[in-house]
């Protein structure tokens, strides 16, 4: 019983800030979007902030969708190649991809900013998504290679003997079999791209292109007028709720990412 009392107290401590933020986002405050009582005034206020919530939300969704799709395609094809084929340079390429983990994120964003300028992707959501795909690659590739290796070879060999090309065997037979791995990789890619603040801060310079985190942080950095804290917590909720829901629904797949040892760089 003492165990449950102290653990519950701890759980409340961890959950309190989230609950407080949700409550503050709908609570009335004189001089804010929600002048009194409870309601979604702070949210409507936030919807009109800067370029408008629809713009920021669309940017965030676009970047996340492109990152998830890109990571899945590159890591599924690559994982298949590393699990089932041998070709010159294979081990070198795999090690180079894993080395991305060794190099601190923040230190190559400055050259990436310059490089994306060279290839016409500066201040572009596509460029930002490509950078996210690169940062996801070590984890995703490692996860997918292990997923493909766990499939019995006989399954694929039967298809190949029946005259399927390797791509038919891949798309019809192997891909459905590695679905759990794909879900884990996709989930990690979504959470990373949806939440990241530093990469868009550096790679984007046009307010109309900002994803949610950069846009909401800019609410705290207004040069005139007081900071609207209620609106700020509404912004926090808009960012956090999709992640909380996804985590609660896909908890199993999330934990698999930890179990895989892929974090072990």
């Amino acid at each position: 019983m003492r165990y449950h009392i102290s653990m519950s107290a701890l759980a409340v401590l961890f959950l309190f800030p989230l609950a407080w933020s949700g409550w503050s986002s709908v609570r009335g405050q004189p001089g804010s979007g929600q002048a009194g009582g409870y309601g979604f005034g702070n949210y409507t206020q936030m919807a009109a902030f800067g370029e408008g919530l629809p713009t920021y939300l669309t940017n965030s969704l676009l970047v996340s969708a492109m990152t998830v799709a890109g990571t899945l395609v590159v890591a599924a094809l690559g994982g298949y190649a590393f699990a089932r084929f041998s070709f010159p340079g294979k081990n070198l390429l795999f090690l180079a991809a894993l080395a991305i983990l060794m190099v601190p994120y923040a230190t190559i964003l400055i050259p990436l900013y310059v490089l994306l300028g060279y290839i016409g992707l500066q201040n572009s959501l596509v460029g930002l998504s490509l950078v996210f795909v690169m940062f996801q690659l070590p984890f995703a590739l490692y996860m997918m290679r292990n997923s493909f290796e766990a499939i019995p070879r006989e399954l694929e060999e039967a298809a190949l003997v029946d005259g399927c090309g390797t791509f038919r065997a891949f798309s019809r037979i192997l891909l459905p079999a590695v679905r759990p791995g794909l879900i884990t990789v996709g989930l990690f890619a979504f959470l990373a791209s949806w939440n990241d603040f530093f990469a868009p801060l550096i790679l984007l310079n046009d307010g109309a292109n900002f994803p949610l985190p950069v846009a909401v942080v800019s609410m705290t950095q207004r040069t005139f007028g007081a900071i609207d804290y209620g609106m700020l917590q509404a912004g926090v909720m808009v960012m956090a709720i999709p992640c909380l829901v996804l985590f609660l629904v896909l908890q199993r797949h999330y934990v698999r990412g930890f179990m895989s040892g892929a974090l072990r760089g």
Binding site: F14, W20, N195, V216, C243
Partner: peptide, 23 residues
């Protein structure tokens, strides 16, 4: 308990920092 302790980790770090900025 596990879910409760982990839940803050599901929130993005930028969102968490803004949450504490108000808190």
């Amino acid at each position: 308990y596990r879910a409760a302790f982990f839940l803050p980790g599901a929130v993005g770090f930028a969102a968490a920092a803004l949450l504490f900025y108000g808190l």
